[in-house]
Nucleic acid binder design. Structure first.
Lengths: 251, 251
DNA sequence: CGGCCTGTTCTGCACAGCAGAACGATAGCT
DNA sequence: AGCTATCGTTCTGCTGTGCAGAACAGGCCG
């Protein structure tokens, strides 16, 4: 990012800042957008309307706004609805068996999107992250999916600067970690994206071998035990296998 | 895309339109941006400065502006420089053998970017498209690369609306065409992206089997002959194989 | 149902965004 | 190398556009 231009245009600055916020922080309401920009609610609403008009934003089902396709993040729609109904019973069963929150995520560019969340029944639990996005290289499901790609594909994904998501991704370290993920069969995210949350993720292969979805278990770090890891990983593998079978059947 | 908002903000509209133009049409100068928006050159320059400031644009080496990282298109840098030096002799040899313009393209999201162009020696030829981007589903190299992906991955890429690139991609038709591409071993783009230009593309597999780069031949449609297709496809295959061998050695 | 909060619509006003002019840089030709 | 035309960049006066506040509409919870 550069110095502020000598002849800056404030209205344009507001719009571009808002687009960047939508992309980085997932769904935002009008009031929060107004707060973050330091403008009136009516101004924030007008800016959001302009962003929607030019596809830099989209409205969600809960009166909030998300990044739109012009920001390079297509909003999954219909295929996701099918995926959700297919995966939901399996995720519910998984959460019942282990009593931790389970998620289904989809790789979109260099982020994973949460498509389904089934929360654990306990009072202390990781909550619902449906609709949110996380950097793929940090999230457990994201790492599992990146590990199902070639090194070349991963490098191509992270080529070039990412000034909107500092710090820049250390691709050498990422590739080393992805090799470990491949060996173990699952990926770990220990407080890498949220304080106090530890998650284990596993890729789900599509009918033709490649993977673009993942299942994961997310738990309070206080409940994470290394000696239980093999058990959780086994449950994830079984869930992934069941989903894979169903995907193979329905095409 | 929606109706124009009741309380539109013209300055914001100009900026967002310009960002979209940069993304769709590759490098633009200040004067052309002014023309396309219907504003003064000084206004276009101020808008571009704002886009650069917030990473929706970047300046290139020739006083022009390209889409920036905030538009979800990381600008390939170092890996591309290596790729260029590796591929250039092979592309030169290809262009000498067939006397048509050859290109090396990289799949980035749902577009292909032209990384290397070697122009044919003839007076009537397809020119240099380095730095430009085309929709993957229309370009020959793009189709070849999409064909190296699973149907599921292609669907995930095109899920959701793409109103900035009308018409919306007919994914069923695209999948059918990609099946043909897989059978034949090459992809064809007959005037699908530029009037009077026909191109043949072939994916180059990476060291571990997958492909994110393609080689293609682009020619004036007047010089395209169906009876020559097998010959051109054979030359492309040979060039792809040579590049693959070199990637396997150095990669 | 009522109250509260948030999203959406409308309008008066002053200052921010615009275009034109001037200046600086670049490219091409002789 | 010098000149010219074109294009990028900087500056400024002015008016109409973008802003905030007020009013209205919608949604949620007790």
């Amino acid at each position: 990012m550069q110095n502020r231009p000598a002849y800056a245009i404030d209205s344009v600055d507001h719009a571009l800042r808002l687009a960047t916020l939508l992309r980085q922080e997932g769904p935002l309401g009008v009031s929060e957008a107004a707060l973050r920009l330091g403008v009136a609610r009516s101004t924030a609403h007008r800016l959001l309307a302009m962003l929607v008009y030019r596809d830099f934003a989209a409205r969600d089902a809960r009166r909030r706004y998300v990044a739109g396709p012009a920001l390079g993040r297509p909003v999954p729609t219909e295929p996701v609805a099918e995926l959700r109904s297919l995966a939901l019973p399996h995720l519910r069963a998984l959460t019942e068996r282990v009593d931790e929150t389970s998620n289904l995520t989809v790789l979109v560019g260099d982020q994973v999107r949460f498509v389904v969340t089934v929360e654990a029944a306990r009072v202390l639990r990781v909550g619902d992250r449906e609709g949110r996005a996380l950097p793929a290289h940090l999230a457990s499901g994201g790492k599992a999916l990146l590990a199902s790609r070639t090194d070349e594909e991963v490098l191509a994904l992270y080529a070039g600067p990412h000034p909107t998501v500092p710090p820049v991704v250390d691709t050498a370290a990422l590739l080393r970690e992805l090799r470990r993920v491949r060996r173990r069969g699952f990926a770990l995210n220990d407080r890498g994206t949220e304080a106090g949350v530890t998650a284990i993720g596993r890729a789900v292969r599509g009918p033709r071998g490649a993977a673009s979805i993942a299942v994961s278990l997310a738990m309070p770090t206080s409940r994470f035990r290394r000696d239980r890891l093999a058990g959780w990983a086994g449950e994830l593998a079984e869930t992934a296998t069941r989903i894979e079978r169903e995907l193979a059947t329905t095409g």
